[in-house]
Design a protein around this nucleic acid. Structure first.
Lengths: 190, 190
DNA sequence: CCGGGCCTGTACCGATCGGTACAGAGATTC
DNA sequence: GAATCTCTGTACCGATCGGTACAGGCCCGG
């Protein structure tokens, strides 16, 4: 379908193709068709081929999360607000469960090893940034780490089951449950 | 490596290959090598090709979960015990987070649509059986449904993040947190 | 000893895979 | 206006894809 109008839209469009078809399933023919580019152009912009395309996509995703979620979690003077913003940003980014997490999908597949460092870094940064915010919001450090792990896990799981059951609302319900758990932990005292 | 000794070991061995490489990544050459069979034998046992292989694998998985987890959840006269047994069975089946859920991996990929009914049925049966057990254990029906959805989601998410972070212990920690939440709900009164 | 299943390996098929080579279009620069 | 540089489409490469055809090995009942 639609050609990518601008060059800067190339990576997001690539991300969408990888999200929908996975790394192995996204053939160069398919990518070219979706981006409106022939192989010549593809290899001009990404001399490293598919591997570089995927690497650039992972890079862009990590940069987006870092700027929009992880940094606020670490630096916002109001950590509770940053936590709530994270949940809202998750709902927006994953299109309320209609979109899949590319990094999570890569983690389950055979490509995991090829991009191990980036995949690991993405989840570790998310977990650590959230734990930091929870601690700053008054939770015990140990409890914060536990809860942060729980939160990232719940979001990933919700993307899996929402996709499996074709039930996008499941994602919203999970975020609500998760929000309640996070709020409870952030209250300075029970 | 090792050839599958008996014919009955074919499907479990197939499942392992699909788990490790995904549907698209599991080529017939790879499958043949892992099962110690040539294409002739492969197509003799599975005339429908890869599609039938995957279908038989999903069938076998669903049958195992039905017998070992879902039915006990629905029928065990001691539902609380069945819930605890489910957590233990999950830990065993997924090798404490070292193994991935094939159904979940399929759900995230492009193959989802091809096996939509089976994937949907697997997760729906799990959720509904667990909700049934929780209700029988004294929880409110609405809370049971919520908690059951939460549990299946948490387990799937833990498999994603454990694989991503190469941290199998994350799976056990998630099961412990989940167990605590389930136990709390099963107490007849707070 | 022999005929006929069941099961197997192998050669082969057209299609598609990721990747390369290259010639030319279009704009820009002097 | 000629040279240059960026970007593009297309033809082509060997390898591999899923799948088919088929001949023969094995083992059985007769």
């Amino acid at each position: 379908m639609g050609a990518a109008a601008s060059r800067d839209d190339l990576v997001p469009a690539l991300a969408e193709v990888f999200r929908e078809h996975g790394f192995e399933g996204a053939s160069l023919a398919l990518i070219g068709a979706r981006l409106g580019l022939g192989k010549g152009s593809l290899y001009h912009h990404f001399p490293g081929g598919k591997e570089e395309m995927a690497a650039r996509v992972l890079e862009a995703i990590e940069a987006w999360f870092e700027a929009e979620m992880f940094r606020p979690l670490r630096e916002d003077p109001d950590p509770a607000r940053a936590v709530r913003a994270m949940l809202a940003a998750s709902d927006a980014y994953f299109r309320s469960g209609r979109r899949v997490c590319l990094v999570g999908a890569f983690a389950l597949g055979a490509v995991r090893d090829r991009f191990a460092r980036r995949i690991d870094a993405y989840f570790a940064a998310w977990r650590d940034a959230l734990a930091d915010a929870l601690t700053r919001a008054g939770a015990e450090p140990a409890a914060s780490r536990d809860l942060a792990e729980d939160a990232v896990t719940a979001i990933q799981g919700a993307l899996v089951t929402a996709s499996a059951l074709q039930d996008p609302e499941l994602f919203g319900r999970t975020l609500r449950r998760l929000g309640a758990r996070l709020e409870a932990a952030m209250k300075p005292a029970a």
